[in-house]
């Protein structure tokens, strides 16, 4: 089998969202022609603009290999990681040009850089660390491969904010924790080493948390790591109802019970 190389254009048109709220009255789109390089990603085209055309272009990036989650953007009508999106793939999808926008529904600080404050505050609010009641082991908390499989999918989250930006409940409910924080709560509730499951359920079993999820599945569509957040959030709902029916007192423990 030989690899069939498709005929590619000599250069590709890149359209980028530009907006500096301190200076500009309204956002605009700047267009650049970027010379074609085989294997080029959308992040590469942004680098080309930054280095050769316009040094004032602002965007976030770090690892360039899809594990840091910094470069999540709204590329050609979908949430994608700029570093993992091949321009060739966009062409194969039928797009003639590359169009890069900041994550929707988040405040823009400059160009493609969005304000993720709410996202991080929500993540902090769910106490995303292990809480154990037993004495600390000498080395580490051991976990069997079977138990680890329960949380495998959710550990793979890179905190890029795509799900948060795609969720209608986040758009309309400023208090809502969002799919990421809820999924991460489930990651600890389902973790067999953690012993504060019901305290955690108490944090999210309210209208600010799991019950505001209307199973719209936008987060599942947006996630660049193919995580199914809805499965996790529905698990939270089920476990919360169970704990409430049992009259669990831990549900009312509050955030302080989870502090280290």
């Amino acid at each position: 089998m030989s690899i069939e190389m498709k005929q590619r254009p000599e250069k590709i048109r890149l359209n980028v969202y530009r907006f500096d709220p301190e200076v500009d009255k309204a956002p605009r789109i700047d267009s650049f022609d970027v010379p074609w390089v085989d294997g080029m990603t959308v992040l590469d085209t942004l680098f080309y603009v930054l280095e050769k055309r316009d040094g004032s272009l602002a965007f976030r990036y770090s690892c360039r290999e899809g594990i840091c989650g910094a470069c999540a953007m709204y590329i050609n009508g979908s949430h994608r990681l700029a570093c993992e999106t091949q321009v060739a793939r966009l062409l194969d999808e039928g797009h003639a040009e590359v169009r890069v926008m900041p994550l929707p529904h988040l405040p823009v600080i400059k160009d493609l850089v969005v304000d993720m404050t709410r996202f991080w505050e929500n993540y902090e609010a769910i106490a995303p660390w292990i809480v154990t009641r037993s004495a600390d082991p000498e080395k580490e908390h051991l976990q069997s491969p079977e138990d680890r499989k329960l949380v495998d999918e959710y550990v793979g989250c890179i905190l890029c904010g795509s799900c948060f930006s795609s969720c209608p409940s986040v758009w309309t409910g400023k208090e809502y924790l969002g799919p990421n924080a809820l999924m991460k709560t489930w990651r600890w509730v389902a973790d067999t080493r953690d012993s504060a499951a019901e305290e955690r359920l108490g944090l999210v079993g309210n209208e600010r948390g799991a019950w505001r999820c209307h199973t719209v599945f936008n987060c599942v569509e947006a996630c660049p790591k193919d995580i199914n957040q809805t499965t996790a959030i529905q698990g939270l709902k089920r476990r919360t109802v169970g704990a409430m029916l049992r009259g669990s007192k831990a549900l009312k423990a509050g955030r302080k019970a989870l502090e280290r």
Partner: peptide, 18 residues
Amino acid sequence: PVASREVRYGDLDLWPTR
């Protein structure tokens, strides 16, 4: 941030095709 603004549908065709 010193200044920021939410990106909305009207801002240069952010209509979500996703």
